[in-house]
Design a protein around this nucleic acid. Structure first.
Length: 276
DNA sequence: CGAGTGTCCCGCCACG
DNA sequence: ATCGTGGCGGGACACT
């Protein structure tokens, strides 16, 4: 992996559901959003902070996210030994196909947390190695890659975190309803979203909605929405260099001063300081 | 689920 | 002047 992944931060692979990540030195706790999928670590380790829990992932434990989640993460890399990892997206279509064939028992304790790390089993490590190997060549990635990703997805489903993926994939389950609302938040974050409306969409009472939402995301609906808005704003500020007032407006804040205040509290630096 | 309580966010303001 | 950052108050509504 060290030989393949040269660039710092995220880099794409020949497969769009797979990406590499490299960090050469320790990085302090900072807020980030992860998409649904798994993170397999080759070297170094990370700590993910969500709510009052810490999720450690390292070469012996992979991280599983069943929904997109904003959390804070800290990277630990020994000098000369950068943190190297592989992220593999879990595709709903593949999960559905596998579940149909697997005949897993249906009843699950539900809803369940959207994040968790779990021991890297031998078959999983084996598949991950073969995936990395085949990603070295474009034709092999194209021809062999999807099969290996499918295999990895299967191992995740069989593992301890499989139930979280199954829950989200199970139509009309509470987890799936929450996942749908999260999708809506991610596309409509700039609009006025009130919780009653989101609860309706999840076919739940407002209080049941709050409860399920917290089970899955470890945060409340408003807090989650706020995180997404601030992350999107950061993207606009860094990526497009828009001014602060514009960024506030684009992510749905009516008050630029409120935006500025919350941005600083969230990221530890004011929006002005990060404009690209 | 309904309702009380606590938090959030907007609007307005001052300041640099 | 414009733009960004913060303080304050209260109505609204998120959360328990």
């Amino acid at each position: 992996l060290d030989r393949i992944v040269k660039t710092e931060g995220w880099s794409p692979s020949f497969l769009d559901q797979v990406a590499f990540f490299r960090v050469s030195r320790n990085s302090p706790r900072c807020p980030i959003v992860y998409e649904p999928g798994i993170i397999i670590v080759g070297q170094g380790r990370k700590k993910g902070y969500l709510g009052d829990k810490v999720h450690l992932y390292d070469p012996d434990n992979y991280l599983v996210l069943s929904v997109p989640l904003p959390f804070e993460c800290e990277t630990i890399a020994e000098p000369g030994y950068p943190y190297l990892a592989l992220s593999v997206a879990m595709e709903p279509r593949i999960i559905g196909e596998l579940l149909a064939e697997m005949d897993e028992g249906l009843p699950l304790p539900e809803p369940v947390s959207g994040i968790g790390s779990t021991p890297l089993t031998e078959p999983m490590a084996n598949a991950a190695l073969r995936l990395v190997e085949c990603l070295r060549s474009e034709p092999e990635s194209r021809i062999l890659g999807p099969q290996i990703v499918r295999e990895i997805t299967y191992h995740v489903l069989k593992g301890p975190r499989g139930s979280a993926l199954r829950a989200v994939a199970t139509r009309d389950s509470r987890s799936a309803q929450i996942a749908r609302v999260l999708k809506r938040i991610h596309s409509d974050y700039a609009r006025d979203l009130d919780i009653r409306m989101l609860a309706d969409e999840a076919h739940m009472s407002v209080s049941a909605f709050h409860h399920s939402f917290k089970e899955v995301t470890s945060s409340s609906p408003l807090q989650y929405l706020k995180s997404i808005r601030l992350h999107k704003a950061r993207g606009f500020l860094i990526g497009e260099g828009v001014n602060v007032g514009m960024a506030a407006d684009r992510v749905g804040y009516a008050s630029a001063s409120q935006f500025s205040r919350e941005y600083k509290r969230f990221f530890g630096e004011s929006p002005r300081e990060v404009r690209g």
